[in-house]
Design a protein around this nucleic acid. Sequence first.
RNA 1: GCCCGCGUAGCUCAGUGGAUUAGAGCGUCUGGCUUCGGACCAGAAGGCCGGGGGUUCGAGCCCCUCCGCGGGUACCA
Length: 561
Amino acid sequence: MKQDIALAVQAACADVFGVDDQTVVLTRPDEQFGDYATNVAMRLAGALHKNPREVANALADKLRAVLCDTASEVSVAGPGFLNIRLSDAALARAASEEPAASFAGKTVLVEYSDPNPFKPLHAGHLYTTLVGDMIARLVERAGAKTVRLNYGGDVGLHVGKSMWAIVKHLGGEHPEALTQIAEADRPSWLGARYVEGNNAYEDNESAKQEIIAVNKRVYQLHADNDHTSPFAHIYWTCRQWSYDYFATLYTQLQVTPFDRFIPESDVTLLGVATVREQLAKGVYKKSGDAVVFEGEPFGLHTRVFINSEGLPTYETKDVGLSLTKWKEYPNFDKSIIITANEQAQYMQVVIASIRQFAPEPAEHTVHLTHGVVKLQGGVKMSSRKGNIVSALDILAAARVAGAETGTNPSEETVLAAVKYALAKNRMGGDIVYDPKESIALEGNSGPYLQYAHARARSILAKAEGMDMAITPDQAFQPAERLLLRKVAEFAETVERATEEYMPHYICTYLYELAQVFNHFYEHNRVIGSERQLQRLRLVELYADTLKKGLGLLGITAPDAM
RNA sequence: GCCCGCGUAGCUCAGUGGAUUAGAGCGUCUGGCUUCGGACCAGAAGGCCGGGGGUUCGAGCCCCUCCGCGGGUACCA
């Protein structure tokens, strides 16, 4: 609908003023002005050397004729805004319109979550997992063949640190000692080892040298495909513990399962080979014993791809990952990568370097970044000290807050609370997570929307068996029209969220939708009204829209709570 | 130092490619319930949109500059 009208306005500009290629932006004005508004007249006025209102009036005359089937009113207001009001029939059509399939036939890779084995899952992982799931749902709904990828560092310095501490803790390379660690304790035990290794690396020079040696052994273990030595046994066992621990979280969160886990060790060799090959071609440069990419000519900074020890850094592995994606999903249309903000400039350097020898995957890669999740009261967290907020801590905090309010929320409401709280802010900024606010049944929260949905369903249940057909000759009353108008914004909201990869637009919209409904419901009888049929149909449309929107966020919409 | 991002109500945040009168939730205050689930609704108070300059008919939004906060800045990512 919106698109059709924009095209009509564009055509009118061409017909009346001979202006082609005029980008028309339609906005949603205040209800009193109409359903859509545009400022084209004011933008055209300058170039045409005409009065904006004059331009607007000429366009309005044209549009009244062209849009006679969809618009009930085209008016000019203020300095020259064109306001368009939809006819009831057009509005009803718009309200049941599906969002456009803008990714139909396209392949979109979405990489998110990306936890590193041997390290704990912190609140940031929870955030990228949930938001990544939402973005994947958005592009999938838009018709994309979606591939959900999970990339994790099972090699690299952090593994060296952990393995160093693990071996030390086991009193040597004794894999059998691992059996003494209870299954439930494995994640925290591994987390503690990482903190030990990290502290030792920073504080103790001889430990640092040992860790560097252990790191090399881990790479060697992969090169040799060693699954039998005691060291390898410890490595593979602990790596599996990590993957089991990640799976626990994903199951709890009820996110869409990943299509593929790509451990770093799978892409390292390709990355190293590529960087060495491109070193010979001059893309990368030697700097001492290290191999770097000089970012300065691109307005970026220089980064090390292969360190002085001859080991690949994360940069090189990302090169390998990017080429692996292109090889295994050839000619993908989009590769979306979601990470924390701190990697924004890092990723620019990596992509700039890839662009020098593999322009296609580089051009089709989109890097989205998000902020840090802090708990209300915001204490600075440090993984080095081990006092991080873990992913599961956030869920636990929501449960505790729910219990404290006495509402005793179900697990699906706890999930709704956490998902919605993390999704409702524009991605990119830091999130201050307030468990109480997230679980609250009033205010802008997931549970509020679940309740709003359940409430509408209960009205419908009461009217079970009644004829739900709309009576076509009855015009909408103003209050009904307001609700219908809000429902009709669903399609364009989803389209925008998809286009910009911004799930929070959906949150804002759903909350507004629920408020508009509550307003309607407060002042208008549904069951028992003379207009019962139309109104039940409206309630159903509203409930369906709410449910669809929540579904895009990975939030369930129970019929009763 | 340089690069990137961010400063909107007491708090947490929306604010579309510039636009008609800056919005919401929480909190505070005032009203409305033997209810189609009041987990709601109606209303009030609370803003030099970090400061200053510029462009424009018009700037929270664009440009410049300063201040503050966060991140990055060669061998972690």
